[in-house]
């Protein structure tokens, strides 16, 4: 009985576990290669740097599993963050500022979800459109200026250290735990998989596929809001270029973690391992003193190899 459970566990999480193994091996090798790598300072530093993308990758995983893609997340971080930053630096009101950030981000998510779920526009196109719109609005509203001078409470709460670990890092981990549960054990999560695998069959079971598709993008929007807040806590400033390129990082993290671009497959623990590998790899390249111009090449190769390995493994398993 117990054995059977173990077997099933290994079968179900095969790609996640193999990626975890790769990460562990990489981590051990790097610990020997660079004395600065396996230190508390370095690890916390990497975790801190990856927190924004990690949170975005949660929403991205939802959307990709549902069979779509969300290209708007990066610029949405910029727009929602900018609005919140402008409000807060003017009024000093933290609570309303936070609500604005999350509200605007969710609104963008619902808008994307409406385009994809109800108006049936291809996700790539719809979210590409919103990406461009968000970026443009950010510049229009800020007039190209950057904003800082947020309420002190934001720093006090966000950067508060528990056992030496900053609050937003703990928040990121808790968010992963919560959303993993949402994805595996709630209607929204389960039906996201069903829609991504076979949306017609899901619809014929009575599932409101439009609604649930929209909700996936709304989840992504919520994550954008939270990521934008973490970003503000980390940098204590927002400028119009904030968020650029984060959508690609979040997609890369999901894909490395075993999320299938075809939809229907992937888990948040997998995505988390993906973002760990992605972030520690960049860190390692820095520590090893590799020319930063080469770093993109290395991470690109890792993404392609990860997808290749996954497709070979799943073919062999069939």
């Amino acid at each position: 009985m117990k054995n059977e459970r173990m077997n099933r566990f290994f079968r179900t999480y095969r790609s996640e576990l193999s990626m975890l193994l790769v990460f562990v091996i990489f981590y051990i090798v790097m610990s020997f290669a660079s004395p600065a790598f396996n230190t508390k300072v370095n690890v916390l530093n990497v975790l801190s740097q990856m927190s924004v993308v990690a949170i975005l990758a949660i929403g991205q995983t939802f959307v990709i599993v549902s069979g779509g893609i969300d290209l708007a997340v990066g610029m949405a971080v910029g727009l929602s963050g900018m609005l919140g930053a402008m409000y807060m630096s003017k009024t000093g009101n933290l609570l309303v500022g936070v609500l604005i950030v999350i509200g605007v981000a969710c609104l963008i998510g619902f808008f994307n979800g409406f385009l994809v779920g109800y108006l049936r526009i291809a996700a790539f196109i719809a979210t590409l459109g919103s990406q461009v719109i968000c970026n443009s609005l950010t510049y229009v509203l800020s007039d190209g200026n950057s904003y800082s001078g947020f309420p002190r409470m934001l720093d006090t709460i966000g950067n508060h250290k528990f056992f030496g670990i900053r609050f937003y890092i703990i928040f990121m981990v808790l968010l992963y735990i919560l959303m993993t549960w949402v994805m595996s054990s709630t209607k929204l999560g389960r039906f996201t998989y069903s829609i991504g695998s076979n949306s017609e069959a899901a619809r014929l079971s009575g599932i409101n596929t439009r609604k649930y598709t929209m909700l996936c993008y709304a989840v992504s929007g919520l994550m954008v809001g939270l990521a934008a807040l973490v970003n503000m806590v980390r940098l204590m400033a927002v400028d119009p270029t904030t968020g650029g390129g984060l959508e690609m990082d979040s997609i890369a993290a999901s894909v490395i973690g075993g999320v299938s671009m075809a939809g229907g497959k992937g888990t948040l623990p997998g995505t988390f391992v993906g973002i760990l590998l992605y972030s520690f790899l960049r860190n390692a390249l820095n520590l090893l003193g590799i020319n930063p111009f080469w770093q993109g090449t290395v991470t690109g190769v890792v993404i392609i190899v990860a997808v290749l390995a996954e497709s070979f493994a799943s073919k062999r398993n069939k």
């Binding site: 017609e200 069959a201 014929l204």
Partner: peptide
């Protein structure tokens, strides 16, 4: 194509 989600478990399919 219309009835079942082939890569999902029997349990998830049957109680969908």
């Amino acid at each position: 194509y219309d009835g079942l989600i082939l890569n999902e478990s029997i349990a998830d399919n049957i109680s969908q």
